[in-house]
Design a protein around this nucleic acid. Structure first.
Lengths: 204, 204
DNA sequence: GCCGTCGTATGACATCTGTCATCCGGCAGT
DNA sequence: ACTGCCGGATGACAGATGTCATACGACGGC
């Protein structure tokens, strides 16, 4: 091993972020050289520190870790990307991979896998939970169209059709049509269930 | 300081749990003597290890950290309780305090506060974020009755009135009445919003 | 050029949801 | 004893939601 592996850590909850840094700090071949709390600070920090690996939480303010991964991948293609998330949603895995991630870890995996993953991606390997990979493949692609997704997302907070129509600049009937088709595609019985299922699968 | 402070750590996500353990391990006066991943394992572990402080995440399978805190407080009144959570919901703070917690921390507070809180509670102090305390007081108590809360909780996944009636052994009309009063108490316009608001305030 | 899909829209219809008035029994305060 | 509140229920009504048929223009593939 030539020199220490330089890692950027992106995670919005400071306590968790600093704890993960402490964990990685226990490994002598790994060094956390930068920490950020927002998705939209990732790229700048990555540029500023000449890092080897970026460790990105998905759920962050400003920009998701997946979006941040895509940008880093485009701008700094040599940086390896490890995506970390609370929720093992197959759709997340799919989009993380499409964004150029090299590893996908869920936070309820054993802590040892974190340092492991960092070393493996640097060696050119990809790290993916096999169970999750199977789930992602079994589930198939997102059946929702762009508009259906938008309407579902807007409907999440309990807005009425009239409000949805206003915010999305659509007619009320159109909103109902989209929700109706989404409900049918997801094989559920109302918008609330549709939102829940789509979220669970990582389709929103 | 006579001897090291013995801590029990309860948190369901292994990566976070072990990272927090690593963080606390850096302090020489603190020792993590037990770790559990489920709320319903807390009491037994606390009994088995003669601990000084229990550090409890709220969101856990089996039993919430708040419920676990209440049990430990009843059975082992000398154990100090630190409740840790992702969500700074005023209602959580309120119920944590009612369950006998000595400290209430949100995960996006600086990591240093964790060890700090452990030492402070052992010294007999209480540790509460002042902003959150103010919010909890300003918000007033939970206006929902037991049944209203139950129905709202059951309605979260998008079940229809008929399904709710079946699972709760109520008539459909009664379900609608409870939802209607809950909707009015929360000053919102439908069940979805009611669920969202009640969750946000920590009233479910 | 034709076909399928998407985005958008309308109208009609059936069903679900939310509101309200009203009722009952039980139980806690005063 | 009286008053309120809670849990539970019914019936009636208005409005919101979900379904379906149908339509049109744009665009992509074959």
């Amino acid at each position: 091993m030539s020199r220490t592996i330089k890692v950027l850590l992106a995670e919005d909850q400071s306590m968790v972020r600093e704890a993960l840094a402490a964990l990685l700090g226990l490994e002598d071949d790994i060094e956390v050289v930068a920490q950020v709390a927002r998705g939209d600070e990732v790229l700048a920090a990555a540029r500023a520190h000449d890092i080897d690996v970026a460790l990105l939480d998905i759920e962050m303010p400003g920009m998701t870790g997946i979006e941040a991964a895509a940008r880093v991948h485009r701008e700094l293609p040599d940086v390896k990307l490890v995506v970390l998330t609370t929720f093992g949603r197959p759709g997340y895995l799919r989009s993380a991979m499409e964004s150029g991630a090299d590893a996908f870890l869920v936070k309820d995996a054993p802590a040892a896998q974190l340092a492991e993953a960092v070393r493996k991606v640097l060696a050119g390997e990809r790290v993916i939970d096999p169970t999750l990979a199977a789930a992602a493949l079994a589930e198939g692609a997102n059946p929702l169209t762009d508009r259906e997704r938008e309407v579902l997302r807007a409907a999440e907070d309990g807005s009425t059709n009239a409000e949805l129509a206003a915010t999305l600049h659509l007619s009320q009937g159109t909103v109902r049509n989209y929700l109706s088709t989404a409900i049918q595609k997801l094989a559920v019985r109302n918008r609330a269930e549709a939102v829940r299922i789509a979220r669970e699968k990582g389709w929103l």
